[in-house]
Design a protein around this nucleic acid. Structure first.
Lengths: 318, 318
DNA sequence: TTTATCTAGGACAGATATTCGCCTAATTCC
DNA sequence: GGAATTAGGCGAATATCTGTCCTAGATAAA
């Protein structure tokens, strides 16, 4: 445990663990002079690890963000947490989007002590996240490419295969990605339609980045928009219905944040919901699983579809 | 950029990035003698970072698991991946289970370069995971405690609040945890019933570890069991039905792995599924959302429940 | 088996870095 | 103002690091 190398690393570790720590304490812990501590701080800064100092009484040292990432020293618990996070990311299908996930896992795997590895394995063996599985996607690298494009605010082109119209080439400004019900969706500004649209990633193929860039509207809150947009895909048919329930349990079902209360209107007999859909089949399927009663005001086509769905169910229990 | 400290760290970084690397290459990259490289390797080992050496032709150095975690050197991409993973873990509510998630995030946050922070923020702003929201749980630390117990193979005691029987104290050997449909479930051996049971975590309160330990059956594959157990909660009523679809799309709906094919039996008119349920309401709700036709063979109570569900849907579109 | 490539590590001398201790400034909080 | 704390220069003693040369041992391929 001797040599400056070891001790400098120890200082780094102490700084990472404690938010702020004084020179006197560091000196005592390392068994060196305070003067030497100051030199170690200099060494760290030469290593590209900037250290902020607080002068005066109750002063001390702390790490600050620099241009480069310093070596990270994790405790066992923290490593476990990171491993869990990586597993979670994999479950969500983010692994394809971020190949680095695999490399981090490999790095950790190589150096994790046996007992820690065992704990990680224990948790991953006994803990499962079951997500509904969507159809296999047409373009395996769609998520990866779209993540990059969204982050870099580059427009993208792709072919969208809708059940009605077949494959259509589109160019879109990708604003955000949502994972919902086991599927990834892209929300963005569609150049073809000159309007906001959402796309299922498993219906997208041939994603490629375009040279054009775009600006997200500054007041655009991706999270809220994405939540709202869920009900607004397709604009073919106006739908309005009354949900016989209270606001709270409604939003529990929708998984929405407060903002999407916009689509709702309080009525005496429940919540009025006005939205659009382009598939009665899909919408009636969705309605069928609501845990509360509702009344369809319009259109008749939706009533027909739901009636058909219900009739089919009745047939099933003959 | 001189001094042994820097160079030793560089060696560590090179070792972490490359799986195996020879002394000659290291020496060349650092601009030092091969002898010095050997000394650096010794330093690393004194730091508690064990290095495996491969002698002879095509030999070299590589990191191996030790007792302590070495400082991890991540690239920007890797850090982004770790951050994403931590976010994903939070979304799944794993943060309560692993408090260290927060401390890792804090550590990273402190030292991440500004541009990297911006990228993380960019992705987290534009990417959302929407999960159905369950009821608030009775015991906030249930997941955390159960994770610990499952990992340590310690029996637990808790109060289970079922809608039918109210609160009952149970002692259970926790075998595994599943996240499904926005809720956490515990699967384990129930001492009260002397059988495998699953419990919703939001109905559990007063979790405490017992002193008793248990052994998971050696042939018990948690993952498979957890998948299967989904259909087997409660054993009150035998259910059998025929799904008019093929094996592939059935398992897509169930989100199952191959193993759960056990519950299925190929018939000429579809797949025969035999299982159990203790709630006809719940089961019929679940059936209502299947994207294919099916026929209930028994019991009649389930038919009634589904008929009622369908009738209610019919009323909704009057 | 032999040979070419690797690592292991001792010894030593010289170059270099580190450390300590003491000093004075500057800064901050009470 | 006074106490606490960091900043950093300087010099001398010392520790450390490095390159060089050497022998020994391990491994894979010819």
């Amino acid at each position: 445990m001797s040599g400056p190398t070891t001790r400098v690393l120890t200082v780094l570790e102490l700084l990472q663990t404690h938010g702020q720590i004084g020179g006197a304490e560091l000196a005592e812990r390392l068994g060196v002079d305070r003067r030497t501590i100051r030199r170690y701080i200099t060494v760290l800064e030469e290593l590209g690890i900037p250290v902020m100092t607080e002068q005066g009484r109750y002063g001390g040292y702390r790490l600050v963000a620099g241009f480069k990432l310093p070596p990270m020293m994790f405790t066992d618990e923290e490593t476990l947490a990171v491993s869990l996070g990586l597993l979670a990311a994999r479950q969500l299908g983010l692994a394809d989007a971020a190949p680095a996930i695999a490399s981090v896992q490999a790095k950790l795997e190589r150096v994790m002590p046996a007992d820690l590895k065992k704990r990680v394995r224990g948790v991953s063996d006994t803990t499962r996240v079951i997500l509904p599985r969507g159809e296999p996607s047409l373009d395996d690298r769609a998520l990866q490419n779209l993540t990059v494009a969204t982050e870099a605010m580059r427009s993208v082109g792709f072919t969208y295969h809708s059940p009605e119209h077949g494959g259509i080439d589109r160019s879109v400004d990708p604003y955000g990605l949502v994972f919902r019900q086991g599927r990834w969706y892209l929300t963005g500004f569609c150049h073809l339609r000159q309007a906001m649209r959402s796309f299922r990633l498993d219906r997208i193929s041939h994603v490629h980045l375009l040279t054009a860039t775009f600006q997200r509207p500054p007041d655009f809150d991706a999270a809220d928009f994405l939540s709202e947009s869920f009900l607004s895909w397709g604009r073919t048919h106006e739908v309005s219905l009354v949900l016989h329930t209270d606001r709270e349990s409604a939003s529990a079902v929708f998984g929405f944040h407060s903002s999407c209360a916009e689509g709702f209107e309080q009525r005496e007999d429940g919540l009025l919901l006005t939205t659009q859909t382009d598939s009665f089949e899909w919408f009636s399927w969705w309605l069928a699983q609501l845990p509360f009663r509702f009344t369809i005001l319009k259109p008749d086509g939706l009533k027909d579809a739901l009636r058909e769905h219900a009739t089919r169910l009745l047939e099933c229990c003959k």
